[in-house]
């Protein structure tokens, strides 16, 4: 297993790859006002990015364990040093078919709130440092609903990068909804 840890902090305690909120706050401090760093990755020709503060690590794709009745865009769960992390196929999430994952595909492990999830992408491109003012709003052209999961757009040279709203993207999987009501109902009928 090839694991590339992004050295967002050369802090010894981040060896686990999981930053505590304190550590994150510390890192926030030295950054210039107004500028933000994003990790960009690609699905085919499309480029997406997430805030570097969210990224915990980047791994090469390995086989995952499928869970019963998982959504079609979920690949399964992965053991990340003892923590069980769900892995989602970003391509599939955007309804562009399932990624044929190989060892050169990449899983970006990110923190969304207090949850840790992984997103399967084709490759990681680079780290972008951009000023807040460079972020453009998403044109409300199509009604596919996909733009709901994009916070904004950034132009980097020739490329256009979409900033992902990871919280909304996997809201159903990482928010506990109405418990197992269906289950209860079933039990009552038994």
């Amino acid at each position: 297993m090839v694991a590339v840890e992004i050295d967002t902090a050369s802090n010894a305690s981040t060896k686990t790859g999981i930053l505590t909120p304190d550590e994150m706050a510390e890192e926030n401090a030295p950054r210039l006002m107004g500028t933000q760093q994003f990790v960009t990755f690609a699905i085919g020709a499309e480029e997406y990015a997430v805030d570097i503060m969210q990224v915990r690590e980047i791994q090469a794709w390995t086989e995952v364990t499928i869970l019963p009745n998982q959504p079609h865009y979920m690949r399964g769960v992965l053991n990340l040093r003892g923590i069980i992390v769900p892995i989602f196929d970003l391509r599939c999430r955007f309804d562009q078919g399932e990624t044929e994952a190989t060892s050169i595909h990449v899983v970006v492990i990110i923190a969304v709130g207090d949850r840790i999830i992984g997103i399967l992408v084709d490759r990681v491109s680079d780290i972008l440092t951009i000023d807040g003012s460079e972020i453009r709003a998403v044109p409300d052209l199509d009604d596919s609903g996909e733009s709901d999961h994009i916070i904004g757009l950034v132009t980097a040279g020739e490329r256009m990068v979409a900033l992902l709203d990871t919280g909304s993207l996997f809201r159903h999987e990482i928010m506990e909804t109405e418990l197992d009501d269906a289950d209860d109902a079933a039990a009552l009928q038994a």
């Binding site: 009745n69 769960v77 069980i84 949850r115 999830i117 990482i174 289950d183």
Partner: peptide, 14 residues
């Protein structure tokens, strides 16, 4: 025993 629910929702049957 590891919790599935710390990063994912609960799964019926598991």
């Amino acid at each position: 025993i590891k919790s599935l629910e710390s990063n994912y929702k609960s799964v019926a049957g598991i």
